[in-house]
Design a protein around this nucleic acid. Structure first.
Length: 640
RNA sequence: GCCGGCGUAGCUCAGUGGUAGAGCAGCUGAUUCGUAAUCAGCAGGUCGGAAGUUCAAAUCUUCUCGCCGGCUCCA
């Protein structure tokens, strides 16, 4: 029976039913046939060898197509499992999906893999790749598959087959590895030309600590060795930008064993943090916020009332003093609620926007702490907006705009927005109706603000749904920053109300929001994004004056005094060192401007300006230099 | 928390059972210098902590603290 195959360029060809994509590729040309990895049949990815039995649109996939990478990495995961099968015949297979930048495969083994094992696995993979082992697809009845995996001693696979619907399941064989798998796969292992096994770590079957422990091996593969080398170089670059490393090198902060998960801000780091706070205050003042500060330790009754005790106590620190049971605040909302409740509020005051740079403490499991991004003590640029139901949408639209405005100021162009909805019932406070109203309000606001967003079902806070903003740094890592949450429950818990226009008492709605998120985490993002070269307006030291020799010290100090008088943050490097050394160190400290002062400059009452990015800029008078720096600060320019 | 790795001078690291090392930073001195490292000397460590094995422990064992990686992403 003939079928019609439509190609991407619009041409149609006739084939006998059962023709494979490979044959079609060969028909189109030998170049395409040899580059072909898989095919899209009516948009569905398929093996090259899988017969087509009806009219279809066919697109041959080569390494140039984006869709191919996932297939390629997935096939690579099978190759890794094949290598493990040969080296560790007793390994039980879990799952092996592609991930960003590579893939992993989970194995249950008696002994965790050692670095040596990983090298052996990599070598074995390379050996198997060279053999050009075919990826063979089989479709077999489900009971047969179950029996097969039982016979192979693969309980996890058996479990997965049992969970799968349908009567027939597909399996793939590559080398001595046989796997339950939808596919598709590359035609043979020879296309996997560049392989690197990266690391191994613990995981649990289906990600649940209650299940069997497994060893997860991470690896990556590429179509050619050059691409792999580039990828590894990028990983190196990411290490160089790591905020923990730069934090030490630039003397921004330390974290000590005496206080795990808590930050000691050094003078330079605190300059930057304070710069961020000043920046946010300026933004908030323009938007009608009123700043408050609420206590860190409050009677535990407050937390029982807010619902935190019930839903969040595992993450809270408790203290006792004067016989009072108290807790350290993990969030600022109850404090704000008490402030709201301290006066009789009128509808005329709404929306009441109470901001707070609130210092929160949350107990985090020891294994999850990480630099500035996951800490136990942090300051949120928080605010609580009390408003009427009608005002919600406009407030949220404004917040979405504010978030985008702030991120643009820092040069974050790639911002992802996520809407997280209600977690499992029983883990939340508030009624069904309240949740529905809150979620609907967020969705409406997102649509009004024309924001593209993704939904994270069940990922909301225990008191309300939320919109999260994730920014991507210069090396592609994403970090959660802003969060906007609608909360109908807290005003109830604290019995908050306002006098409405008609004289009745009504319940306000609460919107929680943070724009930078936590100052600690935002610092991490900023440090990694800028590789430590903070924009001039935030740089802890904006300029360093570099006298050439002793006899220029007096002039250098005079210059520095003038700059300081103008409000610039300036140091003088009057060490007994050569100018080259002073410049090198200022460059390494990422100081935006270096001002070389010697005989020439004294004579002309100038400084020779060198900026960290473009090098020597030649002489400039001091007033001119001050003016140019002030302009950069005013504009919050991203580059000197 | 769990699994693995790691913990030696302020920083980066060497040192696999026999007297604790290097580079950088620091201090002192010399040098007075023009756009990414001047030279010399000096000083600096209960080898994360505790217990154990041993004639002898940074090194081996146990416990403990901390750090790093990972623990959601359909076979």
């Amino acid at each position: 029976m003939p079928i019609t195959v439509k190609l991407p360029d619009g041409t149609a060809k006739e084939y006998d039913a059962g023709v494979t994509p490979r044959t079609i590729a060969e028909d189109i040309g030998p170049g395409l046939a040899s580059a072909a990895i898989a095919a899209l049949i009516d948009g569905e990815p398929r093996d090259l060898s899988r017969p087509i039995d009806k009219d279809a649109e066919v697109r041959i996939l080569t390494p140039k197509d984006e869709e191919t990478l996932e297939i390629f990495r997935h096939s690579s995961a099978h190759l890794m499992a094949a290598a493990v099968t040969e080296l560790f015949p007793n390994a039980k297979y879990g799952i092996g999906p592609p991930i960003d930048g590579g893939f992993f495969y989970d194995f249950a083994v008696d002994e965790p893999f050692t670095p040596d094992d990983l090298q052996k696995i990599e070598d074995k993979m390379k050996e198997l790749a060279k053999k050009k082992l075919p990826y063979e697809r089989q479709e077999i009845p489900k009971p047969e598959a179950i029996a097969k995996f039982e016979e192979l001693g693969q309980p996890f696979k058996e479990e997965l087959v049992k969970e799968k619907g349908g009567d027939v399941v597909s399996c793939y064989r590559v080398g001595s590895f046989y796997d339950f798998c939808e596919g598709p796969h590359v035609p043979h292992s020879g296309v996997i030309k560049a392989i690197k096994v990266l690391k191994s770590s613990a995981a649990y079957w289906k990600g649940d600590e209650a299940n069997a422990p497994m060893q997860r091996i991470y690896a990556t593969t590429f179509y050619d060795k050059k691409a792999l080398a580039e990828h590894l170089k990028q990983l190196e670059e990411a290490k160089k930008r790591d905020h923990r490393k730069l934090g030490t090198e630039l003397s921004l902060f330390i974290i000590r064993p005496e206080a795990p998960g808590q930050v000691f801000w050094l003078p330079k780091g605190l300059k930057v943090v304070n710069g961020l706070i000043a920046y946010m205050r300026e933004k908030l003042d323009k938007r009608g916020y009123q700043e408050i500060q609420t206590p860190i330790v409050m009677n535990v009754d407050v937390w029982k009332r807010s619902g935190h005790y019930e839903h969040y106590k595992d993450n809270m620190y408790f203290v006792e003093s004067d016989g009072m049971d108290a807790a350290m605040k993990p969030m600022n909302c109850p404090g704000a609620a008490l402030v709201y409740d301290s006066a009789l509020r009128s509808y005329r005051e709404l929306p009441l926007r109470l901001s707070e740079f609130g210092h929160c403490h949350r107990y985090e499991r020891s294994g999850v702490l990480s630099g500035l991004t996951r800490v136990r003590s942090f300051v949120q640029d928080d605010a609580h907006i009390y408003c009427t139901y009608e005002q919600i949408e406009q407030e949220i639209v404004d917040l979405i705009k504010l978030a985008h405005e702030v991120y643009a100021d820092f040069g974050f162009e790639d911002v992802r927005v996520e809407l997280s909805t209600r977690p499992e019932k029983g883990k939340t406070v508030g009624t069904d109706e309240q949740w529905e109203l809150a979620e609907a309000a967020l969705v409406r606001a997102l649509e009004t603000a024309e924001t593209i967003y993704r939904v994270n079902p069940g990922d909301g806070a225990f008191y309300g749904p939320k919109i999260d903003f994730h920014v991507q740094d210069a090396i592609g890592r994403t970090h959660q920053c802003a969060t906007i949450q609608v909360d109908f429950a807290q005003p109830d818990n604290f019995d908050l109300h306002y006098a409405a226009e008609d004289g009745t008492r009504k319940r306000p709605v609460l919107i929680h929001r943070a724009i930078l998120g936590s100052l600690e985490r935002f610092m991490a993002v900023l440090i990694e994004h800028t590789a430590g070269a903070l924009p001039v307006w935030l740089a802890p030291v904006q300029a360093v004056v570099l006298p050439i020799s002793d006899k220029h010290h007096a002039y250098a100090r005079k210059v520095a005094d003038e700059l300081k008088a103008a409000g610039l943050r300036v140091d003088v490097d009057d060490r007994n060192e050569k100018i080259g050394r002073k410049i090198r160190e200022a460059q390494l400290q990422k100081v935006p401007f270096m001002l070389v002062t010697g005989d020439k400059e004294i004579e002309g009452e100038t400084v020779s300006v060198r900026n960290r990015k473009d090098g020597d800029q030649g002489p400039e008078t001091i007033p001119d230099f001050i003016e140019s720096v002030e302009a950069l600060v005013r504009e919050r320019a991203l580059r000197p």
